[in-house]
Design a protein around this nucleic acid. Structure first.
Lengths: 159, 159
DNA sequence: CTTGAAACAAAAGAGAA
DNA sequence: TTCTCTTTTGTTTCAAG
């Protein structure tokens, strides 16, 4: 299930698609100096290998509707495998939770929440505490200003 | 520069594109119960209004190359406007910094870093301290396991 | 990897509800 | 206006070399 080695052209295709996800295959081929067919075959291979998880429009939430964005660090009651699983299974289906990561360094999880307003956020967290998902305590950090959000630079990775 | 009111179809278009960014316009039109032309016009309008910032392929970094992902909370020396600007201008061009948010709640910024390995991360942070960008201290949280990452649910927003 | 052809989608216009 | 329908142009996909 691991990767068949990626060459520079594969990396170029991935890098291009991560910035211009709706580029036409003809144009993509031109960008990576390939004719359309082999480029299309590579793209299909990358998708089927699961290296491309999907394509997403990136939206300007500020223009679309009122909302707050909050990061939350979470500490669990107990550190047994079943507690982690319980928390993860509780949190994963919540629509307002747009990101969640298990982290090292003093907390157990970092969550990213995008939701209507602060009241709705408080209700979400109250429900999470009451749900017995094993949350000992949490700290909230409201986003006051988004500074940057970009796809990872593939050039920095050990290709 | 603000939005011309979005109706349910606009929201449906945005929601669909945020999950299937490479869907064909014909298929998109079918999904939102519209014929291709008006759907195409709406989509163009949404893009030109800046509500769609761009399209991105979401990549499986684990399959592509070795890397670490780190969240970093940052506290600045001083809270004058020029200090914030200096920090933001220093951090914004760094390729390894894939996300940065100004936050309330005890720290000034949260940064998301995706980089080759822990050594490269340390070097990045050392450089940031030496650069006199006004960082008083920072805390690092290495991601040990990504749990969830999805686009925001538009249904939860005050459309 | 290239060519080339058939199937399909995108873009733009003319006009009806 | 806002949608439907039609046409032209360009893209996607695949077979064959």
């Amino acid at each position: 299930m691991e990767q068949t080695r990626l060459d520079d052209r594969d990396i170029a295709i991935l890098a291009t698609l991560s910035r211009e996800g709706r580029i036409s295959k003809t144009e993509l081929a031109a960008r990576v100096n390939l004719s359309p067919t082999p480029c299309w075959e590579r793209m299909k291979r990358l998708e089927q290998a699961g290296l491309i998880r999907g394509y997403r429009a990136e939206l300007d939430l500020d223009g679309i509707g009122a909302h707050v964005q909050v990061f939350v660090t979470v500490e669990l009651d107990s550190h047994r495998a079943e507690n982690f699983q319980l928390f993860e299974r509780t949190v994963a289906p919540l629509d307002a939770v747009t990101g969640c990561w298990a982290i090292g360094g003093g907390y157990d999880y970092l969550m990213q929440v995008v939701i209507q307003d602060v009241a709705a956020f408080q209700e979400l967290m109250d429900n999470l505490l009451e749900s017995r998902a094993g949350v000992r305590r949490y700290y909230s950090y409201i986003v006051t200003k988004p500074i940057k959000s970009v796809p990872p630079a593939l050039g920095l990775l050990n290709g």
